[in-house]
Design a protein around this nucleic acid. Sequence first.
DNA 1: TGTACATCAGTGAACGCGCGTTCACTGATGTAC
DNA 2: TGTACATCAGTGAACGCGCGTTCACTGATGTAC
Lengths: 250, 250
Amino acid sequence: VRAELTREITDIARRQLATEGAAGLSLRAVAREMGMVSSAVYRYFSSRDELLTALIIDGYNAAGAAVEEAEGACRREDYPGRWLAACGAVRAWAIAHPHEYALVYGSPVPGYQAPQQTIGPASRVAVVIGAIISDAYRGGALAGPWVSGEGPGGVAGPGGTGGGPGGWPVPRGGWPVPPVSFSPDADRLRESVLPGVPSDVAARALIAWAGLFGLVSFELFGQFENVITERDEFFRYAAASLGRFAGLPD
Amino acid sequence: VRAELTREITDIARRQLATEGAAGLSLRAVAREMGMVSSAVYRYFSSRDELLTALIIDGYNAAGAAVEEAEGACRREDYPGRWLAACGAVRAWAIAHPHEYALVYGSPVPGYQAPQQTIGPASRVAVVIGAIISDAYRGGALAGPWVSGEGPGGVAGPGGTGGGPGGWPVPRGGWPVPPVSFSPDADRLRESVLPGVPSDVAARALIAWAGLFGLVSFELFGQFENVITERDEFFRYAAASLGRFAGLPD
DNA sequence: TGTACATCAGTGAACGCGCGTTCACTGATGTAC
DNA sequence: TGTACATCAGTGAACGCGCGTTCACTGATGTAC
């Protein structure tokens, strides 16, 4: 029964988030809508920040669940399909919950410091996206070029043809090579979200990941106003292009 | 003298933005720091929203000026250099002024509706970036592929080789083709920031533009925490990759 | 050169509002003997 | 079966705070004659 009420409080708080924004979230307003006195809420959340943390975790989880579900419905070998499904789910969830999206992927709430508990849920979307790239790579479906010596083969993709020093195809004028300082990051990524992929694949996956959220944020935050009219179609195209950038096939 | 005081007010407001965030911006606090009584500020700004609008316009202008300056210092034919300079300037300005960046490119301020006056300054950065792509295209330096029939030639780039129906090189497994619904948008873009470029070049420029801000936002808003350690070098690499994505040469 | 007047930047008090958090408390519920 | 007690959800008042905006006002400055 306590859990039930806790959930009801976060539901109301989420609804208020949608009308007032994160900075306008108020314990008193939540209590009012609950038909409680403001101090009663302190039985459930010891401060406003704790409530905010709960909302952030919920937001990450909701986005993660939406992406997992959409991506999970695809054939495992359909890597571009999985990518498009994941991208589309991110966008659809963001459009359906713009204030929650802003809360977790937008500007930080001033004066609020995200606690450790948020990092697990925060990575769910990244895990899905990483798995797509990883699976495609290990399935030999990811287009080159690879940085010399790291790749297991794979088709020559939009990079075209050419010969790299390590025997893998590296096209003339191919992709830039990640800086050496990226190596430790790549190691960490391999251990978590991008098992088995070479550094340059990981680096481009990261850029595509940031690009995906750049597109969604631009759309939601108004930068595409008077620029793009048919947003659904354009987004699908853009997501496909980013997937191609990351090396995914057609 | 009136202009002087107006500037002083916005300066103080900008400083407060940096410590309290946009939602915490308060006319009273500004007045306090000015050594004025709160109502005196109304001589200069008739409401809090008007002050916010001034700050947004200043923010867009500052970002625009920084990008224009950095990009303007490059040799005109050095398209990739111009691109890297512009990207680097966006990021450097954002890091130097994180709250102003959040104000203009982050989540919208709840309850605030941006007036028309903001759209001019808002486009300064886009104009610079568009000019780089446009110049490179018209200079014949932009890599293919083009969508059939639209291009003026240009080198075959990361797309590799292949033959398109219109005679321009379109590689097997090349870039996706923008949806037909994008045509009117492309027309509009050609008239403003991307003169003369074909639709698919415009579309990829748009994606690279969103990707650039996705990278900057991810870095500033904390998504790269525990992911990327050497941010300067990685960003340079990522910007180069996005430039390549948009078709720029090495 | 001197006076009358208009302008307008800045004052000070007030309006009505909402906020987070604390604290001693009430009163229902369930448990132990 | 009945009594004493502990638990704890929710109350109500209060603390001290800041906010945007309004309004009648003061008093210095500059201008017109």
